[in-house]
Design a protein around this nucleic acid. Structure first.
Length: 674
RNA sequence: GCAUCGGUCGUCCAGCGGCCAGGAUUCCGGCUUUGUAACCCGGCGACGAGGGUUCGAGUCCCUCCCGAUGCUCCA
């Protein structure tokens, strides 16, 4: 007698010996066909596994099961590690988890692996899969687990068992043939489920992500149930590469990065500058509606300012070095001052200098503090598209998404504790408006909260509770997945971050809204309350899009270069069929420009076909084709970026169609493309 | 910063010890006067820098510079 409990709680009884497959068939033929493997009492088993008599929990795993693919990939990680150990000696294994689009295994071996080793590793992996040896789970107590790892000379595993897993009484291993690996599991019952795999790349990684620890090599790979799925994945990656903002930025003439200017310093070319300005104007118009005041502040400030704010010298390694007064320089030079002495003198305040500003807050704080403030004045909202400079590590600079000089859509709000919740919510309204206008719905929200066990936080715990509740509630209003992260709050206050993925799956933090109880203390900010007493305001830092650079980088990829009409630097181009049509075409262009549209003309004596090709390559929203026929009839022939040739319409109609589209800021879906 | 990979006309790519370093595209000039994705002809134009090996180096070695990817997703 076998009693099988299914995940939905229902129980099936069998009075004879059955296999997993039999149970699946009894549920439905479709399920039986889709079944890959099953878990009996949480242990993965093959479909022909004979279910023991008695009561068991059974979960049939299909391709659509949430854990199916990650499990498959993690098993494939074992296969990959095993393959590497077969072709190399003295291989040290670290971690090998499944990740978003595949899996990796961190490995250390000497000499290091390179891409040239991929074919050999892949071939060995194929051999292992074809052997079809099962993954067998082995459970050991702590002591023998350590011994096993020591015997295998797997030092990382030994460390992990003794330190990372110090709490666990028993530890599990998975064995497949000669390969034994400390592993939580689960695994697929048999490697035959791995229908297709590919080693993607190799990169460096530190043991436990710690720069001071051993440098490992991280082998990235991916695996699927079917070859077709792998092929589709690879095709999608190819497609994604075409959206890369660095490629499109060059192709569309949006920005330039010049070695002679410096790494991570963006030169905005006219078209990109236009997009940026347009976006900035759009955000500004909403800031005005929400009661913000625009301010301007300089790009540098005295060291003393940053010492008071606490940014100097603690963030020194991520700042450009300080600028010194001319007299100081001369004096120090004549004294033969060394760099170390210089640095000490700057820290101690013996000499003064200026810092390229790494953030705008201290400047804004000083604007707040420039006059007496009353509770009647609050909230005070100071906004600035403020350019800041940070000396990011050279290895992580790239494109528009990681730069050394960037302009934040920054603002600082000085509010009373009572106003905090409303103001945090208000910050998110803007985020909502902009993301909706851009048609960006694929972002996630992180709420950084206190670590309940830590005491490093500044401010009254009661106020923190209120602030955290406000952040949580405001974040929920966005209608996007929220991830609460205890311990991720800054020491000075809780925060909300917005995160998007780029075309190759990297995550980028865009904006942030942070509550700050610290800076008002450091700068001794006050306002006079209704009780005629001095009170401490709370600050909110907010840059909903992070930086114009990163946001536009993400936008370029989001739109795959096809900006909506209101953002497109070149909204349409007039193409003449022959030079005969040029006078009329110029007239039309003039008319359109007068209507506020951004229209260029291609009056070259090229064939129409090649002008169209050029216009399409530049992803222009519209091409207006003008020939003698149009000149006679007062029309233009429209070619739409998505729908192709739309025929001739009167000039006035073309203009109103465009101005309507601009005014509505509509995002035409890529899917419309014929 | 560290690991792997890479750096060739403005751009994309070929060349991997040996004739004037190719092609495509852009650009310039000519030809053409064109009706919905590429007419033709000609021209300009490059081996990241510095050392070394060699009869001979874009190609091999070393150093430096620059770029890409990764260094978050825990046995």
């Amino acid at each position: 007698m076998t009693s099988v409990r299914l995940p939905d709680g229902s129980v099936k009884e069998f009075d004879k010996q059955v296999t997993v497959k039999d149970v699946a068939k009894s549920i439905g033929s479709r399920l039986a066909k889709a079944a890959l493997w099953a878990e009996v009492n949480d242990q993965p088993v093959k479909l022909d596994y004979e279910i023991p008599a008695g009561e068991v929990d059974l979960k049939i795993v299909t391709k659509t099961s949430e854990q199916a693919l990650p499990t498959l990939r993690h098993s494939c990680a074992h296969v990959m590690a095993r393959a590497v150990m077969r072709i190399r000696d003295n291989v040290q294994l670290a971690f090998g988890p499944a990740i978003d689009n595949g899996f990796y295994y961190d490995i250390m071996c000497d000499p290091p692996l390179s891409e040239e080793d991929f074919p050999a590793i892949e071939a060995e992996m194929q051999n292992i899969i074809e052997l079809d040896e099962p993954f067998e789970r082995i459970v050991r107590d702590r002591e023998s687990a350590v011994k096993i790892c020591q015997d295998m000379k797997q030092e990382f595993k030994v460390e992990h068992v003794t330190q990372g897993l110090a709490e666990d009484e028993t530890l599990s291993f998975y064995q497949q043939g000669e390969f034994l690996d400390l592993c939580r599991g689960p695994h697929v019952p048999t490697p035959k489920s791995i229908g297709a795999f590919k080693i993607m790349s190799i990169a460096g990684a530190y043991w436990k992500g710690d720069q001071s620890r051993e440098q490992l090599q991280r082998l990235y790979a991916t695996a699927f149930f079917k070859q077709k799925e792998l092929d589709e994945h690879l095709t999608a990656l190819e497609e994604a590469k075409k959206r890369d903002h660095r490629v499109l930025g060059r192709k569309l003439g949006l920005f330039h990065i010049d070695e002679m200017v410096g790494q991570g310093l963006i030169l905005w070319t006219p078209k990109g500058a236009f997009v940026r300005q347009q976006l900035q104007d759009f955000i500004s118009s909403h800031l005005r509606r929400q009661g913000y005041d625009q301010v301007f502040t300089p790009h540098i400030g005295k060291l003393d300012l940053y010492k008071t704010s606490g940014h100097f010298p603690y963030y020194q390694e991520s700042q450009y070095p300080a600028l010194l007064d001319r007299e100081h320089m001369a004096k120090l030079a004549s004294e033969g001052c060394t760099c170390g002495e210089l640095s000490n003198k700057m820290e101690s305040g013996e000499i003064e200098g200026y810092l390229l500003k790494p953030m705008n807050c201290p400047h804004h704080v000083k604007i707040y503090d420039s006059q007496q403030r009353s509770y009647r004045d609050l909230p005070i909202r100071l906004a600035e598209f403020g350019t800041v400079y940070r000396y990011e590590q050279s290895g992580e600079i790239g494109g528009l998404t990681r730069v050394r000089g960037f302009t934040q859509d920054d603002a600082h709000l000085f509010v009373t504790q009572e106003q905090l919740a409303d103001e945090v919510a208000g910050c998110l309204d803007l985020v909502k408006i902009v993301f909706e206008t851009m048609g960006m719905s694929d972002y996630s929200v992180r709420v950084g909260l206190r670590d309940p066990d830590s005491t490093k936080y500044v401010g009254d715990p009661k106020n923190w509770d209120l602030a955290e509740a406000a952040c949580r509630q405001a974040a929920n209003s966005l209608g996007r997945p929220i991830k609460e992260e205890p311990g991720e709050a800054a020491f000075y206050g809780p925060k909300i971050d917005f995160v998007v993925k780029d075309c190759i799956g990297r995550h980028w933090q865009l904006g942030t809204v942070q509550v700050d109880y610290n800076l008002p203390i450091r700068f001794d900010l006050n306002y006079t309350g209704a009780d005629n007493q001095q009170h401490r305001p709370v600050m909110i830092h907010r840059a909903p899009f992070g930086s114009m650079e990163r946001f536009i980088g993400v936008l370029i990829e989001h739109f795959a270069g096809t900006f909506p009409l209101w953002l497109a630097p070149e909204q349409a181009r007039i193409l003449t069929v022959s030079n005969k049509a040029e006078p009329y075409a110029r007239e039309v262009q003039e008319q359109m420009i007068s209507a506020g549209l951004r229209i260029t003309g291609d009056y070259r004596s090229e064939k129409l076909g090649s002008k169209i090709r050029d216009g399409r390559h530049e992803l222009l929203p519209y091409l207006f084709i003008i020939g003698p026929r149009d000149a006679e009839q007062g029309t233009v022939s429209i070619r739409d970026r998505y729908k192709g040739d739309l025929g001739a319409i009167p000039v006035a109609k073309a203009i109103s169609m465009m101005t309507d589209e601009v005014a509505s800021k509509v995002v035409r879906e890529y899917e419309e493309q014929a």
